[in-house]
Simulated assay, not measured.
Amino acid sequence: MAEGFKVDLEALDTAASGITNTLAKLQFKKVSDLDHKKEDIGHDHLADVLGKFCTRWEIGVENLGKDAAQVSQRLNASVKAYAQLEGQIAGHLHGTASSTGGEDPGVK
Score class of each variant (00 low, 15 high):
G65M: 07
P105E: 03
G101H: 01
G42V: 02
N76P: 02
E86D: 15
L26V: 07
V31F: 13
N21C: 00
Q73H: 12
L93R: 06
P105H: 03
G101S: 05
E103S: 13
L12F: 10
N76Y: 06
C54H: 09
A81R: 08
I59H: 04
E62M: 11
T100Q: 12
Q84D: 14
V71E: 04
H94C: 09
N76I: 02
K30W: 01
A97E: 05
A15Y: 02
H43G: 00
V61A: 11
R56S: 15
Y82L: 03
A90S: 09
H36D: 04
F28P: 00
K29P: 00
A90W: 02
A69P: 02
L75I: 05
A47V: 02
C54K: 06
K38D: 13
E58A: 15
V49G: 00
G95E: 13
K52P: 00
Y82R: 01
G18A: 03
H36A: 14
Y82F: 14
H45C: 00
L50F: 08
A97Q: 03
T96L: 15
L85N: 13
E62H: 10
A90T: 12
F28M: 07
I59W: 04
Q70P: 00
V31Y: 11
K30M: 06
N21D: 11
Q73M: 09
Q73A: 15
E62D: 13
D48R: 09
G18P: 02
Q70A: 15
D33A: 07
L23W: 07
E103I: 09
K37N: 08
K108D: 13
E103L: 14
Q70T: 15
L50N: 00
F53K: 09
A47E: 03
V61Y: 04
Q70W: 09
V49E: 11
V49L: 10
L26S: 12
